[in-house]
Amino acid sequence: MNPHDRALSQAAARGDESAVRAALAAGARVDARDEDLRTPLLRAALADHVGVARLLLAAGADPNAPDARADSPWLVTGVTGGVRMMRTLLAAGADLRQPNRFGGTALVPAAERGHTAYVRALLAESDIDVDHVNRLGWTALLEAVILGDGGPRHEEVVRLLLAAGADPERGDQDGVTPHAHAVRRGFTGIARLLGPEVRAAAGRTS
């Protein structure tokens, strides 16, 4: 990286809006890549620096630019759970179908991590596919059960996904349903949410 690009990347990572403006004015490239192919916007998104993200987007930054790990500014919002950053990038043209290295959309890691506010906002404010299947054969609902801790946050994520139309009968690659996974893991609250009456109701409305 040249010195101006490096200054921009570092300023974005630490959330220094004045330094970002100065670097851009000095000729830094808004989508310059570091050694891991991360753009300044990706580094800002990782640290949830919304003000910096807005500056970079106004200068033409790409919310979907992937790095060496197939992460992008948009995709990492599902990891961090940053609702304001999610809304900022969504308004800037984020690709809802963009896959991460596991083949999942931003909703999938958010469900896994129990980011309830993020999941609620993303489902309400976009038309993201609630039943998207990643390379492991898992939907957001399956990830919330298989990789979650069974606690209140993951219970709420399950409620939100079901309310948004997630299919409680869609199993993993072996045909094991979210309900069966919840029972196996001893997640009684989630198992109750995914019980036979829920699946029957889903069948009646399909």
Rank of each mutant, 00 (worst) to 15 (best):
V76T: 11
T188S: 13
T205Y: 01
L57I: 10
E112N: 01
R170P: 01
L8W: 02
F102L: 12
L90I: 04
E17G: 11
A23D: 08
G15C: 10
R33M: 04
R113H: 14
D127L: 11
S126K: 06
V83Q: 04
A28V: 08
G195K: 01
I146M: 11
E35Y: 13
R84V: 02
Q173M: 09
M85T: 04
E197N: 08
R170T: 07
H181T: 01
G51F: 06
L194D: 10
D36P: 00
A26K: 13
L55R: 07
A144G: 06
V158T: 13
E169A: 12
A26N: 06
A26C: 08
R192I: 01
G186F: 02
A61W: 11
P168I: 09
G51L: 01
D167L: 06
W138N: 13
A180Y: 00
A53D: 03
T139H: 10
P168E: 13
E156P: 00
V76Y: 01
L161M: 11
D5W: 08
E156D: 10
A7D: 11
Q98I: 11
L142Q: 04
L136R: 14
H49R: 06
E112A: 12
G114W: 00
A59L: 10
A11N: 07
T39E: 07
G82N: 03
R54E: 15
P178Q: 04
D129A: 15
A47G: 04
D62H: 09
D67T: 09
L42Y: 07
V76W: 01
E156M: 00
R159S: 11
L123C: 01
G186E: 06
V108Y: 00
L142F: 04
L96F: 08
D31A: 02
E17T: 15
I146N: 05
R6D: 12
R69H: 12
G203L: 13
G78K: 04
A182P: 05
L96R: 05
H154F: 08
L123Y: 02
G81H: 00
R97K: 14
N134D: 15
A70G: 02
A92M: 10
G165L: 06
M85Y: 01
V145S: 02
T177G: 05
V130D: 09
A91K: 09
A19E: 12
L89A: 05
A91V: 04
